[in-house]
C-alpha cells in the first residue's frame, strides 16, 4: 500500500507539471496584449520598458521556468515565513497581480475562507441529506419514495445552479423576504444575534450548491446499496437472526460506502468549479469570484494561479480517492 501511494504520488507530479504547462501556454501564446489598456499617449519605448518589467520580453521557456520557480519554490517559502515568522523569502519576486499590483497569493488567502465556508458547508449538508435518501430508496426499491427520489435527483441534475440561484432569491428574498439575497463577507459573528444573521445569509447559497451534491451522491449511494443488498452475505446475516437494522445499517451500509466515499472525494473539486457561478449569484467574494473578476480585468497572473489551483485540487482529490479505495477495500490492495 505504501509503495502504491508513493508511486501514485510520483505520477501526479508530471501530471501537474503538464497541466501547468498547458495553462501557461494557453495564456501566453494567445493573441492578447497586456498593454492594451495602457493609454495611447504612452510612447512606445516606455511601453517596451513596462513590458520588460512584467517579464514579457524573455523567451517563453524562461518565462515558464520562472513562473514554476515562483509558484513552487517562493510561494511555499512565503507561507512558511507567514506561519513561523522566518525570513526565507525576503527580497524574492512573487507572482504579482496586474490588477492590484500585490501578490496574487495574498488575495487568494484572504478569499479562500469564504469559499471554504460556503462550499464546504454545502458539501456536508448535501452528503448528510443524500446518504439517507440513497439508503432508503435502495431498501424500498421501486417504492413511491424511490420514484420520488429518482425524480428529485433528476431535477437536481438538470436544473443548473444559475437558475436555482435566482429562483430561490425570488422566492425567499424577494417574495417572502425571509433571507438576504447576498452574502455579506464583512459580517462578524460575535454573539447569538450575529450568528443567526450569518446562518441566514448562508442558507441560500448552501441550499443551491447542496441540491447538486445531493442529486449526485444519493444516486451513487442508491446504486451501491442495490448492488450489495442482493449479495449472499446479506442472506447469511438475516439467516443468523440479526435485526433488520443491523443487517442494513451495519453490514450492507459499510460495504456500500466504499465506492461512495471515493465519489465524494472525486466530486469535491467539481463543486469548487460549480461554486464559481453560485459565488457570482450571491456575491460571495470567494476565489471563484476572484477568477471571474480577473478574467474581466485581463489579469493573467491571477487567472493562471487560480486555474492552476483548481487543477491542483482535482489531481489531489483523485489521488486521495485512489488511496482511499485501497485503504477501505481489502480486496483492492494494489500490491
Amino acid at each position: 500500500m505504501l509503495t502504491f501511494t508513493i508511486r501514485r504520488l510520483l505520477i501526479s507530479i508530471p501530471t501537474l507539471l503538464f497541466i501547468s504547462l498547458v495553462i501557461f501556454l494557453l495564456l501566453n501564446l494567445a493573441p492578447n496584449d497586456p498593454m492594451a489598456q495602457v493609454p495611447l499617449t504612452v510612447p512606445p519605448e516606455v511601453k517596451e520598458k513596462m513590458r520588460e518589467a512584467l517579464g514579457l520580453g524573455q523567451p517563453i521557456y524562461i518565462q515558464f521556468a520562472k513562473w514554476l520557480m515562483q509558484f513552487f519554490w517562493i510561494e511555499p517559502q512565503v507561507l512558511i515565513d507567514h506561519i513561523f515568522g522566518t525570513t526565507f523569502s525576503e527580497g524574492d519576486l512573487r507572482v504579482i497581480s496586474w490588477q492590484t499590483r500585490s501578490p496574487v497569493m495574498d488575495i487568494v488567502i484572504q478569499r479562500i475562507p469564504q469559499t471554504l465556508w460556503v462550499v464546504g458547508m454545502s458539501y456536508v449538508v448535501g452528503i448528510l441529506i443524500a446518504l439517507p435518501i440513497g439508503i432508503y430508496s435502495a431498501y424500498r426499491h421501486y417504492s413511491v419514495f424511490d420514484q420520488a427520489g429518482t425524480f428529485v435527483t433528476m431535477i437536481g441534475y438538470s436544473i443548473p445552479p444559475f437558475f436555482t440561484g435566482p429562483l430561490v432569491i425570488v422566492i425567499f428574498a424577494v417574495q417572502l423576504g425571509w433571507l438576504p439575497s447576498t452574502y455579506d463577507t464583512l459580517h462578524q459573528v460575535i454573539d447569538w444575534d450575529t450568528f443567526v444573521v450569518q446562518l441566514k445569509q448562508m442558507i441560500l447559497p448552501v441550499m443551491v450548491l447542496a441540491l447538486q451534491t445531493t442529486a449526485q451522491i444519493s444516486r451513487y449511494m442508491r446504486a451501491s446499496m442495490l448492488d450489495n443488498l442482493n449479495q449472499d452475505y446479506v442472506r447469511t446475516a438475516r439467516a443468523k437472526g440479526l435485526s433488520e437494522w443491523t443487517v442494513v445499517m451495519v453490514h450492507v451500509l459499510r460495504n456500500s460506502m466504499i465506492p461512495v466515499v471515493t465519489v465524494i472525494a472525486l466530486n469535491l473539486p467539481a463543486i469548487f468549479g460549480g461554486a464559481i457561478i453560485t459565488e457570482q449569484i450571491f456575491k460571495v467574494n470567494g476565489i471563484g469570484q476572484q477568477l471571474i473578476g480577473a478574467i474581466y480585468a485581463n489579469d493573467l497572473p491571477t487567472v493562471q494561479t487560480l486555474t492552476f489551483m483548481f487543477a491542483f485540487l482535482i489531481v489531489f482529490f483523485n489521488l486521495i480517492a485512489d488511496i482511499l479505495y485501497g485503504l477501505l477495500d481489502p480486496r483492492i490492495r494494489y500490491d
Binding site: 495553462i23 468549479g273 487543477a311 485540487l313
Partner: peptide, 8 residues
C-alpha cells in the same frame, strides 16, 4: 480529465 473545465 484533470483540467478544471469551467475555469479553462
Amino acid at each position: 480529465l484533470s483540467l478544471p473545465i469551467l475555469p479553462v
